[in-house]
Structure formats: C-alpha cells, structure tokens
Amino acid sequence: MEISFQDITYTYSIGTPFEHRALQAIQVQFNQGDYVAVIGKTGSGKSTLVQLLAGLLLPTSGVLQVWDTRIHSRSKKLGEYRKKVGVVFQYPEHQLFEETVAKDIGFGPKNLGCDVAEIEHRVSEAMSWVGLSPDLRDRSPFELSGGQMRRVAIAGVLAMRPDILILDEPTAGLDFRGQRDLLSILKRFHQHFGCTVVHVTHNMNEAAELAEQIVLMSDGKVIATGRPVDIFRNLPNLQVSGLDVPDVTKWIMSLNQKLSTPISTEIYELSTLVDELIHRGRRGS
C-alpha cells in the first residue's frame, strides 16, 4: 500500500457562512501501479480527493501518506512532491498558453529542470504518445481543433513522466471517436510506464473498462472500494450514490430477465458477451 489516505477531512472556507465540508474521514489505499477510477456524482468530493493527492490542497485533518512523504494540515514545500504527480484537469486545453505546441508541452519538463536535449526528447515522445503529428510542433496551439488542443494539454502532463497520473474527467466534451482514442492512449501509457493512474469520472463505462480498483464516493465519504465487479455487483450502494451500472451490465440485466440461467454480469467486454451468447446458442439454452 504505497498511497494511503488516513482519516482525512477537508473543509472549504472555514469560518465563513460558505463553510463546506467536502471530505469526511476518508480512509482509502491505492496500490502502486494500479489504474484507479474514482466515481461519484458532482459534489461527492472526488475532485477534492484528487487535489489533495496532487499536493494542491492540504488536508484540514488527517494524514496522506505517499511513499515516504507525509502530507498533513501544516505541510510546507510541496513543490518537490508535486513534480512526481501529473494532473490533467477538466477541459485541460484551457490552460494552454505558449506560442507553439512544442513549447507548451515542454513547460512541465522545463520546470522539472530537464536540459534542452531532454526536453526536446520528451516533447517528441509525448506527441507521439497522444498521436499528434510532428509537423504540428511549431504551430500555435490556439489554431488547432478542440480535440487536438486537448491532446496537446495531455501531452504536456505525460511529458513530465509522473509517478502518479491524475485525470479529472479527461473525456468530457469530446465526441465518441475522440473519447475512444483518448481512452486507448491512457490505457497504453499506463501499461507502458506502470505509473499509478487515478481517473475521476462519472462515466461507468470508462471505469469498468479501465480500472483495476474503483473508489465509490458519495457526500464526501468513500462508500466502497474494490475491483469493478465488487462495485457494480452492489446495486444498493450505487443507487444511494446516484450512479448506475455500465451500459453492458444494464443490457445483460435486461436480457437476464428473460433467461432461466442468467448471463454473468461480470462481463464488461462486448466480445466476451458475444462469445457467451454464441456458446449458449450452440448448446441450446
């Protein structure tokens, strides 16, 4: 257990009429190298949780232990820690500022203290990861399409080669093909570098498809954590949190209402489902 939230509470605007407790007694652990999905409704505290992990907020009480770093309410000098954590915020294309694509992607590595050759190398590598053609290097990021701008912003974070990669709704606003492309990039990046990925989403399909561990949040608390099958099996928990099962699961469930021997709801891949259907069709059910 390399990352652990130990009884963490976070309160916004303490001592004002707008005081608001966003997180309450959070206890949760992530394994190094896992792909973790954090799911929950808007306002469930999932964004606050990842901002703590990113070292951008300090807990009001409790301790966040990440490897040998302990983060608590009076922690100082988190600059070094933050360098190990990459964060892709919602609509990350809104943070672009440099004159050229290459400079913008190089901003992170430059801040890490990489030399020119290393920056150059990392920029090229990150661009190829996100599928941006090398001739876009010297273009202004603001001339690109929305989908390309999103890729530039994500490349800027990948170029930092973070040990922990945090993604807050990375596919929001993209069309279907844009979403599929981005998810497959993230999957490959995670497999290749073995970094810990923490992916915040309210899309259950994404969570089921990618995650090894899911953290289910509601009302500032962690309601449940476990493998996707553990989370999506527990319907009452999901309903209390205002969430649904993935589309595949929903469809299998409606099919199961007609079948005497139900199909397993632990299937998330369409091809597996189809194999199962064909198998049953041959056998005669």
Binding site: S254, L255, G281, G284, S285
Partner: peptide
C-alpha cells in the same frame, strides 16, 4: 434486440 436474442437462444 433483447427479444430477438432471446428467441435465438431458445430456438433449439
């Protein structure tokens, strides 16, 4: 589609 799959599975 659910109905059609069901018919397919119960045809035998």
């Amino acid at each position: 589609m659910v109905a059609q799959i069901w018919r397919y599975l119960s045809k035998t």
